[in-house]
Amino acid sequence: MNKTPNDSKELFALNKPKGYLVTRSDDLGRKTVYDLLPEWAFSDGWMPIGRLDLESKGLLLFTTNSKINHALTTPKNCIKVYEIWVRGHVSDEHIAEALKGVQSPHGLLKALEVEKMGMGGAKTKLRVKIDEGKNRHIRRLFGALKDPKFGTPLKVLELSRVSIGSFNLDIKSAEWRYLSQEEAKLLLENLD
């Protein structure tokens, strides 16, 4: 992909598919996000901003600028939106609990907003907003909630990040593109 004058020099987006690690290299030889990117992304030191675990997919931003990386990963600075499928029926009580927060060994895990988007069989589709991204935040948050009928933890079956701040994912799985200068400016102007 050729760079145009309107492209940000500091940010590009990848739509990460499942099954790729967000790391520069893996001792076990598993696929990493750099397998999806041009060679220069690795050699020029482009770093992922935040993480998505192996089973998660969706928006991942990359930068070479540590200030941008820090600003976008500082808690409370930037809202991230996820669409998830949860095994079981997510009740209003579950949603209230997720908004209030649950204690975990990783500290308080909570969502800013949880919106029910639909059901499919014994699964519930939710749109979840958070402003911090602790390790496996959403999976652990819903895993701490119990299915009232079976007493089993709710389980996130699918997780996809659809936006970070003002930037919404608009590219196909495994594709990448530069943010435009406008998109980068919008994304960064509300940060401290």
Rank of each mutant, 00 (worst) to 15 (best):
R24I: 09
R24G: 07
S25V: 03
S25P: 01
S25N: 13
D27C: 02
L28T: 07
L28M: 14
G29D: 02
R30Q: 06
R30W: 02
V33F: 02
V33T: 10
Y34V: 02
L37A: 08
P38C: 01
P38M: 05
E39H: 05
W40C: 05
W40N: 05
F42N: 04
S43N: 00
D44L: 12
G45W: 04
G45D: 02
W46A: 01
P48K: 00
I49S: 02
G50H: 09
L52Q: 01
E55K: 06
S56I: 13
S56L: 09
S56C: 08
G58D: 01
L60K: 04
L60S: 02
L60M: 11
L60C: 00
T63F: 07
T64K: 15
N65P: 02
S66H: 08
S66Y: 10
K67P: 00
I68C: 05
N69M: 14
A71T: 08
T73P: 06
T74K: 14
P75T: 09
P75N: 00
K76I: 03
K76M: 14
K76R: 15
I79D: 13
V81D: 05
Y82L: 10
I84E: 05
W85C: 04
W85K: 12
V86Q: 09
R87K: 15
H89S: 13
V90L: 03
V90T: 13
S91M: 11
S91D: 02
S91Y: 08
D92Q: 14
E93R: 14
E93W: 08
